[in-house]
């Protein structure tokens, strides 16, 4: 009697485990994942004018200059220091895309916009393209497989790193 109860209990548990496991489970965890997070850091009190520009100081730091368009007077400046190795891409509008390891940060002239992680991939190049209403980043991703072969992928993302349709 007791053995029967244990067998029934075991079968119920086995069924529970199998239903949790399948069909969603994976024996091998995905090594390529993607997350998208928006950060709304503090807005600049001075609304940036169209002449805001990132200027490169050295490999690891950029300086943002915001000029008043009417008087041509500099009203604010910020320096962004990049403490680790990474790539920085800039747009003429003052947008900035920072790539490091498998992470991307995006910020415009006044605030951080988004942060994205794409495991297993590396940004090869990023170019800001003008669109009808605004613009978007054209990203060339590169993935190195263990056997030494590489794969490239092109995609378009806006300032918030949301995927958009390209031109």
């Amino acid at each position: 009697m007791r053995l029967l109860v244990e067998i029934v209990l075991g079968c119920v548990l086995l069924f529970c485990c199998l239903s949790i496991r399948w069909p969603t489970g994976r024996a091998e965890p995905p090594r390529e994942g993607m997350g998208l997070v928006k950060f709304n850091l503090e807005e600049s009190s001075n609304s940036p004018s169209s002449s805001a520009r990132w200027t490169k100081i050295d490999d690891k730091s950029y300086r943002l200059l915001i000029r008043e368009t009417a008087g041509g007077r500099e009203i604010a400046a910020a320096t962004l220091s990049w403490l680790e190795e990474g790539k920085i891409f800039t747009s003429e509008q003052g947008d900035l895309l920072i790539y490091q390891s498998s992470q991307i940060w995006s910020r415009d002239r006044s605030r951080w916009r988004a942060w994205m992680v794409r495991d297993g991939w590396a940004v090869e190049s990023a170019t800001w393209k003008k669109g009808l209403s605004d613009g978007f980043w054209e990203l060339i991703w590169k993935k190195m497989s263990q056997d030494g072969n590489s794969r490239q992928e092109r995609e378009w993302r806006n300032r918030d790193l949301e995927r958009v349709h390209g031109p």
Binding site: I20, R21, A27
Partner: peptide, 13 residues
């Protein structure tokens, strides 16, 4: 342990 993380082996891969 009744979750996908354990049962799929991902936790111990």
């Amino acid at each position: 342990k009744l979750n996908t993380e354990w049962l799929s082996g991902a936790a111990l891969a």
